[in-house]
Design a binder for these strands. Sequence first.
DNA 1: AAACGGATGGGCT
DNA 2: GCCCATCCGTTTG
Length: 191
Amino acid sequence: MKPLSRSFFKKPTIEVAKSLLGCHLIHETPEGKTSGIIVETEAYLHDDPASHTFNGKTPRNTVMFGPPGKAYIYFTYGMYYCFNVSTNKEGIGEGVLIRALEPLEGIDLMKKRRKTDKIKQLCSGPAKLVIAMGIKKTYLGHDLSNPPLQILHSAGKKDFKIIKTERIGISTGRDLPHRFYIKGNEFISKK
DNA sequence: AAACGGATGGGCT
DNA sequence: GCCCATCCGTTTG
């Protein structure tokens, strides 16, 4: 397992969304270490009406227009945060939303943060995994090839199939098949 | 099993 | 002022 390089993210966003499946997200804090396997993602392209970047650059979405491989974290519904990675190249506002993880390390800590003992409820949604992993808004713009929050490459070949479907929880552009998940995985947000 | 609505506040027209 | 890249408990069929 080694950190993903800048070039991993400096590619077409759909490609990155698929390649991220099977990679590990890992966060080290004074409370302890948590990690999980990325099992579900969604791609948001610059010409996509559902993307935060569709109407151009604003204070909130600036990271998506910046260099690839950085954390884009946004506040939503008055109480939650969601975690994305900027992709493609500088100047193009695109990114990948991480929608679900299969919990790996620090499961007790995740249970404490999420206030539940049900393993399938820990990281099966974009806001859930942010809480379980202890990701905070201060990571906005953080380079994900560095600690304490990193994405690591799974070394071996991928022994799973990728399912492609419509995205979840959006109104415009919902028909675009830009959601990807690991076939048969029990930890995705929704079948 | 599915549908519904409340919580709760920042972003943008 | 309206709209959310959500979640969870409650109600309904």
